[in-house]
């Protein structure tokens, strides 16, 4: 027990994977126990039944259709959000005037629950890809904008001065000091953006879609098929987890000096 605890505390890949495994098992155990107490199968189904439902979805091909729909929509919109976010963050960091004028507007937009506008986007842009694309971008772009600007502004004056003393051009200062300094900040923003993008895509699919995890969850819950609902929620959870783990690893890799 003690040995396991020590292993979990370490900062290695094995330890990270073990942590994920341990918490997954813990959730499954608690879930199983609770479902033995709560016997109303409309409210809760045990893990095994959810697994059966998932297998069935795979066999009918519905899983594949939904996965393709959600994954393509969310990744394209996410990648575009990151690109836009970095570009806007760069612009804000490089222009004081822009930052002063556009900053408050962006701040306000960031605190508005844009997700609540989902029905509106769908009536404007229809049930297709466009409405999902725009909704995901609207929710995912802000964390990247904010961290990009903050990271670029946080840059170490001393490092910039050292670069200048070696006669660095402005572009060289940017590429060798300012940007590498900001990168871990930006990646932390990207990590948040991925989580938000998943929320965005599910909500968009709730309101207007004929495929995708969000669509499948809504359809299953309308037929009181709780096992299927939970199965798709788990799929979304896995996507969130994979993204979070990957981006956290990237952050550590880009800024190893922050660890010690």
């Amino acid at each position: 027990m003690r040995r396991l605890y020590e292993l979990l505390e370490q900062d290695t890949r094995t330890a990270g994977l073990t942590r994920v495994a341990v918490s997954t098992v813990a959730v499954l155990v608690v879930w199983q126990l609770v479902s033995m107490v709560v016997t109303n199968r409309l409210l809760l189904v045990p893990p095994a039944e959810v697994a059966v439902a998932l297998v069935k979805e795979v066999e009918t091909g519905a899983m594949w259709t939904n996965a393709v729909a959600t994954v393509t929509a969310v990744t394209t919109s996410f990648v575009v959000s990151v690109a836009i976010g970095i570009a806007v963050g760069l612009a804000l960091a490089s222009s004081q005037a822009l930052s002063l004028t556009a900053g408050p507007v962006l701040g306000a937009l960031n605190s508005v629950p844009i997700i609540a506008l989902a029905p509106l986007f769908i009536s404007w842009l229809g049930l297709g890809f466009a409405s999902k694309f725009v909704l995901v971008i609207m929710v995912a772009v802000f964390p990247v904008v904010v961290t990009t600007e903050a990271g670029l502004r946080a840059t170490d004056r001393q490092l910039v001065e050292a670069a200048r003393s070696f006669n660095a051009t402005r572009l060289q200062i940017f590429t060798t000091v300012t940007f590498p300094y900001a990168l871990p900040f930006i990646v932390s923003g990207i990590r948040v953006a991925w989580a938000r993008a998943l929320v965005g895509i599910v909500v968009a699919e709730f309101f207007g879609s004929f495929a995708g995890f969000g669509f499948a969850i809504l359809a299953a819950s309308q037929t009181f098929d709780t096992a299927r609902v939970l199965g798709y929620v788990i799929m979304l959870g896995a996507m969130g987890l994979i993204g979070s783990v990957l981006f956290a690893a990237l952050e550590r890799r880009l800024a190893p000096w922050r660890q010690e």
């Binding site: 001393q158 490092l159 001065e161 003393s165 006669n167 060798t176 880009l254």
Partner: peptide
Amino acid sequence: DRPGPDRAVVFQQDSLLPW
């Protein structure tokens, strides 16, 4: 009137690139 290759500075504060 500007930095040049004929002069180089060692600063008091740490100014190595951590990455």
